[in-house]
Design a protein around this nucleic acid. Structure first.
Length: 655
RNA sequence: GCCGGGUUAGCUCAGUGGUAGAGCAACCGCCUUGUAAGCGGUAGGUCGUGGGUUCAAUCCCCACACCCGGCUCCA
């Protein structure tokens, strides 16, 4: 056959000469397509542009500016990284180097040495030379035995090959090499070859919009008992513009870093004298936190919750009963021996809430019983895992435990989802994603029947709310299925915040019962529900979401009044008093610095409203309004301004 | 916990084997200001902590604490 016909994604047929390659197809369609092409998808599988097409193939051209295309670029760039490292560090052993979100990494064994920041520049320069040399990536398929010869001096590669050959490979190995009798390898010069399933760009000259970012350590196969490897992270994009945009995004994230803003805005600190992972809240951070908590309490009060308080310590027996000592002792602070027993700082509030439930007989009439507490817990997080407010050792959960009947579970979850989203929206989050975690068949308590029932209830609740959700099979905790809720912040990052978890375990362990309509004793289902998750963490996320510029209702200082000169001080004080009378948080900065300087300071502090008052304002009871991010307004009536701020606050609107 | 890098004034950072410096902030003056840094002066540091080497350590070595980047972990 001298001609073949292939099917394009839009269903169109296209005729080509026999033995045409994917690249030939792209060229025949358009020059631009050929220029942007990095790989192809033939009958569902990603392949190199050099793959030969067969009659009837379904073919799509993968261009560099698509997610799949960037994935190919990144994977190919990772190969060049490995090639460069092997040249710069003779004797280095290379392991695996996948594409990841926004970039790639590659792990090496340097025989006990570590990469330095300086090495990064040297390796990056070497990579650019390799790219300039425009070496072709060529794929071949060899047997496992041949592969073991090719990679004879590379123990990690041999391990992968042997695992594939013995059938013990997991997905990551197969992703690297293919199958036992057809090990896929890529060569892009006489000196460099790597195990890889591909596809890759046709040649290293197609790469170049990349940057090496950081060095770190990583465990071989993620096993902390295994060898420690040296990892280099990089990012790669289809164009300079895309790379620049990404770098700018990183810089923006850095500007928003809550640890940095916490210092700049005097919100809180982590004094080393306190110990790792423990924060003290300064007045400006504390007022924001208090407002968050006040709002949370208000919503819980109107939402049918009952407030409870429980202590920070509990007898070891309690955590024996709850099972925490069996499962999570490593994560608990060490015990304190006292004359009448052993006590632990609590790592969770739920055992104590169960005691409240059990404190007397319960009737079905009381259910659902919703207990709520801003409960401070302590968990011994490993030293290397601490991270500002996002991972901390002492924190406060907005913790609710809901005890209900099996019949009530469905409606309760539906209304919980409403409640959670409504509160999150009040804090400026309106882009949610939902994840349903289901039973891990190897580790669970409770009957299959109740698992199915609860999982279905969770799924149905999501459906009722008409939201998309992903299912994480086997990701549930052993005690019940759950829904996790993620939000997207102002710069598109996602954060896991809220969680709704079914629990069949604790009611069992605590022997919780209620008396049903027929007089029988029944076991309630328990729901764990955290909305902020941790108040501290949520605060950190909020700081980053708003870049420290809190909406007016949350701002530590809502209005700053600046008298133009000393002669306007008295009027400025009067303006402040008027605002204060309407519960506005306001301060006045006297005219000891020049006006421009005081304006600047207020802007740096991200105060929503700066009022400037001078002769004109004194004369006509007005203020000059400098709202955050807006143009200056002169001669605004004071009463009018008060109304505006008060409305702003009530509506939780940003300025 | 593991690997690497750090810790100098409130903050951002220089610097040296002979007990330290800048800018901003603070304080005090002068200026009396109409929308993002006016001018001058003063004060401020056990150079993270504890050991060691040395005639001498902020600097070199060791341990610890804390921080940063990852890994691992996260009820």
């Amino acid at each position: 056959m001298s001609e073949i016909s292939v099917v394009l994604p839009d269903g169109a047929q296209r005729s080509l000469a026999a033995d045409s390659r994917v690249f030939d197809l792209a060229t025949s369609i358009s020059r631009n397509l050929a220029k942007g092409a990095v790989a192809g998808r033939v009958n569902g599988s990603l392949v190199d542009l050099s793959s030969v097409l067969a009659d009837g193939d379904q073919v799509a051209i993968i261009t560099a500016d698509s997610e799949e295309g960037r994935h190919v670029l990144r994977h190919s760039t990772a190969h060049v990284l490995a090639q460069a490292v092997l040249q710069v560090f003779p004797g280095a052993k290379y392991t695996i180097g996948p594409a990841i979100e926004n970039g790639f990494y590659y792990d090496f064994d340097l025989g006990g040495r570590a990469f330095t920041e300086d090495d990064l520049a040297v390796v990056e320069a070497r990579m650019r030379e390799i790219m300039k040399a425009d070496q072709p990536f060529t794929r071949s398929t060899v047997s496992a035995d041949e592969a073991l010869v090719i990679f004879g001096d590379q123990p990690y590669k041999c391990e992968i090959i042997n695992r594939v050959r013995s059938g013990g490979a997991d997905g990551s190995d197969a992703g690297e090499v293919g199958s036992a009798d057809a090990v896929s390898v890529y060569r892009n010069s006489d000196s460099f070859v790597d195990l890889c399933l591909g596809p890759h760009v046709p040649s290293t000259g197609r790469l170049g919009h990349f940057r090496l970012q950081k060095v770190s350590a990583a465990y071989w196969r993620g096993n902390e008992k295994g060898p420690t490897l040296q990892r280099i992270y990089g990012t790669a994009w289809e164009s300079k513009a895309a790379l620049d945009e990404y770098v700018q995004r990183l810089e923006e994230a850095e500007r928003r870093d809550h640890r940095r803003l916490a210092v700049e805005l005097d919100l809180l600190s982590f004094p080393s004298e306190l110990g790792g992972g423990l924060a003290v809240w300064h007045p400006k951070g504390a007022i924001v936190r208090k407002l968050m908590e006040d709002y949370s309490r208000l919503r819980h009060q109107t939402g049918g919750y009952q407030f409870v308080f429980t202590p920070h310590l509990a007898n070891a027996n309690l955590f024996q009963t709850s099972g925490h000592l069996d499962f999570y002792a490593d994560g608990m602070y060490p015990p304190m021996e006292m004359d009448n027993g052993t006590y632990y700082p609590k790592p969770m509030n739920c055992p104590m809430h169960c005691l409240i439930f059990r404190s007397r007989g319960r009737s079905y009439r009381e259910l659902p019983l919703r207990l709520f507490e801003l409960g401070t817990v302590y968990r011994y997080e490993r030293a290397g895992t601490l991270h500002g407010l996002l991972r901390i050792r002492g924190f406060t959960q907005d913790d609710s435990h809901i005890y209900c009947t099996r019949d009530q579970l469905q409606d309760e979850i539906i209304s919980l989802l409403d409640f959670v989203m409504s509160v999150l929206r009040a804090f400026g989050f309106d882009d949610f994603s939902f994840h349903l975690s289901t039973k891990d068949p190897s580790k669970y308590v409770g009957s299959d029947e109740i698992w199915d029932e609860a999982t279905n209830a969770l799924a149905r609740a999501l459906t009722v709310h008409k939201v998309e959700y992903s299912v994480k099979e086997g990701d549930a905790a052993f005690y019940g299925p759950k829904i996790d809720i993620h939000v997207k912040d102002a710069i598109g990052r996602t954060w896991q915040l809220s969680t709704i978890q079914c629990d069949f375990n604790l009611p069992e362990r605590f022997g919780l019962e209620y008396v049903a309509t027929d007089g029988s004793r029944q076991r309630p289902i328990m729901l764990h529900r955290a909305l902020f998750g941790s108040v501290e963490r949520f605060f950190g996320v909020l700081v980053e979401h708003y870049a420290g510029a809190f909406p007016t209702w949350l701002s530590p200082v809502q209005v700053r009044v600046l008298p133009v000169a000393d002669s306007h001080q008295e009027y400025a004080d009067r303006v402040a008093e008027t605002l204060r009378a309407s519960d506005v948080r306001v301060d006045v900065v006297e005219a000891s610095d020049q006006l421009g300087k005081r304006i600047r300071n207020a802007k740096v502090e991200k105060i929503p409203y700066v009022l400037v008052v001078g002769d004109d304002d004194v004369a006509s009871s007005t203020v000059g309004v400098n709202a955050r991010g807006a143009d200056v307004e002169r001669g605004v009536g004071l009463t009018e301004f008060v109304d505006r701020v008060v409305r702003d606050i009530a509506l939780h609107s940003a300025v």
